[in-house]
C-alpha cells in the first residue's frame, strides 16, 4: 500500500537507461552511504535521490541513524584497550603450560584414559556394593532408646502378687 502511494507520488525514474523504483533505491541506500556500491550504481542512486523527495526523506533517516551511531562511538575511549594482566597470564598459562599443552594435543587419548578410569571405578564400586551384605558384622543386642526406666530399688506394685 505504502509503495503504491510512493510510486504514484514518484513515478519510476529513468536514469542512464535503467528504470529504478523507489523500493529498489531504498534497499541500496545504506550500501550507497557506506560506499559499498560500484560507481555505476552509486551514480544511479545519487541521481534518483536528487529527483525523488520520498527517497530523499528515506536517505535522511538512514543518514541520521548512521550519524547517531557514529556519535556513539565516542565512548570507545572508555573501553578497555588491553586484556587485564590476570587474563593475559591465564592465556599464557593455557598456551605454554607443558601438561595442558600435552593434554590438548593428545585429547583423544586423554579422553579414552579418563573414560577407562571412570569405567574401572564404576566396576569396582559395583563389586563393593555386591559384597556389602557379606561384610556386615552380626547384629548385636537390640537397644531401645527412650524406653521408661524402671527403678531397681522399688519393684512395681502392679507386678506384686
Amino acid at each position: 500500500m505504502k509503495s503504491d502511494t510512493q510510486n504514484k507520488q514518484n513515478p519510476d525514474i529513468k536514469t542512464g537507461g535503467s528504470v529504478l523504483k523507489c523500493d529498489d533505491i531504498q534497499a541500496l541506500l545504506f550500501s550507497y552511504m557506506t560506499r559499498e556500491l560500484g560507481s555505476a550504481r552509486s551514480d544511479l542512486v545519487r541521481e534518483h535521490i536528487r529527483k525523488c523527495p520520498v527517497c530523499q526523506a528515506a536517505a535522511a533517516d538512514v543518514q541520521a541513524a548512521l550519524d547517531a551511531l557514529r556519535d556513539s562511538s565516542a565512548f570507545d575511549d572508555q573501553l578497555p584497550k588491553r586484556l587485564s594482566d590476570k587474563r593475559r597470564e591465564h592465556i599464557v598459562w593455557a598456551y605454554t603450560h607443558p601438561v595442558m599443552d600435552w593434554i590438548d594435543r593428545h585429547h583423544v587419548m586423554v579422553s579414552m584414559i579418563i573414560a577407562a578410569i571412570a569405567l574401572a571405578a564404576a566396576i569396582a564400586l559395583v563389586r563393593i556394593v555386591e559384597k556389602w551384605p557379606e561384610n556386615l558384622p552380626e547384629p548385636g543386642p537390640t537397644v531401645i532408646i527412650g524406653a521408661p526406666k524402671e527403678n531397681p530399688g522399688k519393684p512395681s506394685s502392679k507386678s506384686d502378687p
Binding site: 556519535d71 556513539s72 565512548f75 572508555q78
Partner: peptide
C-alpha cells in the same frame, strides 16, 4: 549506565538503544 563521567548525546543514546 556507563556512569556520570561519560555521557553520550541524546541521539547517540537513542541509536545505541535502537541497536
Amino acid at each position: 549506565d556507563r556512569g556520570d563521567a561519560f555521557r553520550l548525546s541524546e541521539a547517540a543514546e537513542r541509536a545505541v538503544t535502537a541497536l
